[in-house]
């Protein structure tokens, strides 16, 4: 059995850690590191019967994950201190939001940049407030800068001078040029307050964003992690609110993300054993390609299906912009090489 299959089975709870031969862990750890999910696995297998050196590595990973999470929330607090005085409220997105809301998928989850969502009408003032608070531009390339401002759903990335941490300031959750236009105003105005006092998307919108990020925007890099987020959050939201799946259906339709959300649900069932309500479980032939892309890693952590990877990369661009614009974009990028 391949290491990536074993890794997914361990997360899903289909396989006992004690059933692995000691050398099976080589590939499992390698795949988990390649997917930036080693600390997630360490949390999932806390208390499991593990070889001593693996148990020790997992202790390290859980401790490091806790530090990283505290640092990410501190970064969110720094953004709040920069934006609150000028009256800008923001919604935390992705990893920092899951941490602030104390969600199960936050345990060990890697958090890279700080992602925040503000009203489109606030974006210029947000930019100025952050520049005044010692964030600065990362990209100096004029075309990239123009591209971000004209076509993207976020400002060009900013990095803090002394803390060396990046912030992505979004005004919506998909590029402006994307075939799908989510209702950004509804995302912000229907946000809820987390246990830590930060605004986060309401449960249904959070699942919509997770699915959009994984299936409508990206090329499925990091797909196993995004799918794990989706699986745990929908599972727990449904426990807390029996009407969650109905609300998810309503919000997904509102944002134009029903296909992405339904596919994410089916994939989380196929990979992680999610139990879906009636009406969500229909078969879909094209899911097969997504499963194959998610499993395309060998026991050394390498992507094994370069053509499939390339196809998903092209798909992500195809969804992101109309054909003539895509041609122009690729032409400009190619000339600058």
């Amino acid at each position: 059995m391949s290491a990536v299959q074993t890794f997914v089975d361990l997360l899903a709870g289909r396989r006992e850690a004690s059933s692995l031969a000691s050398r099976d862990w080589d590939g499992v750890i390698g795949v988990a590191r390649s997917e930036a999910m080693l600390a997630t696995l360490a949390h999932r297998l806390a208390g499991a019967d593990l070889p001593p050196t693996v148990a020790a590595l997992f202790v390290d990973q859980r401790a490091a994950g806790a530090v990283a999470q505290r640092q990410a929330l501190w970064e969110a607090e720094m953004a709040r201190r920069a934006l609150a005085p000028v009256g800008i409220e923001f919604v935390l997105l992705k990893g920092a939001a899951y941490a602030a809301a104390g969600m199960a998928c936050a345990a060990g989850r890697q958090i890279g940049d700080l992602d925040i969502l503000v009203l489109a009408s606030d974006i210029r003032r947000a930019e100025n407030a952050l520049l005044n608070a010692e964030w600065e531009w990362v990209k100096s390339d004029p075309y990239d800068d123009f591209y971000y401002r004209e076509h993207m759903h976020e400002l060009p990335p900013l990095i803090h001078k002394s803390r060396d941490r990046m912030i992505d300031v979004h005004h919506t959750i998909l590029p402006r040029t994307h075939r799908i236009t989510p209702d950004a105003l509804a995302l912000v105005s229907d946000a809820v307050t987390s246990a830590d006092g930060f605004a986060v998307l309401n449960p249904a919108d959070m699942a919509c964003h997770c699915a959009a990020h994984m299936l409508a925007d990206g090329d499925l890099q990091g797909g196993l992690r995004n799918l794990w987020d989706f699986h745990l959050m929908t599972r727990d939201f449904a426990v807390a609110d029996p009407r969650f799946w109905e609300q998810l259906d309503v919000r997904a339709r509102l944002h134009g993300l029903l296909d992405a959300v339904q596919r994410a649900a089916r994939l989380s069932r196929d990979l992680y054993g999610a139990v879906l309500p009636a009406g969500w479980s229909g078969p879909e032939a094209t899911d097969r390609w997504f499963r194959e892309r998610l499993f395309a890693r060998d026991d050394w952590g390498r992507v094994t299906r370069p053509l499939l990877e390339q196809a998903f990369y092209i798909r992500s661009h195809w969804l992101r912009m109309p054909p003539t614009m895509l041609a122009q974009h690729l032409w400009t990028k190619w000339r600058k090489r």
């Binding site: 000691s22 050398r23 099976d24 862990w25 080589d26 750890i29 390698g30 590191r33 070889p51 050196t53 693996v54 590595l57 050394w300 952590g301 390498r302």
Partner: peptide, 12 residues
């Protein structure tokens, strides 16, 4: 020989 690897290096 039975100890799982903490870290992987690939030369390719």
């Amino acid at each position: 020989e039975t100890r799982p690897a903490d870290a992987t290096v690939r030369l390719f």
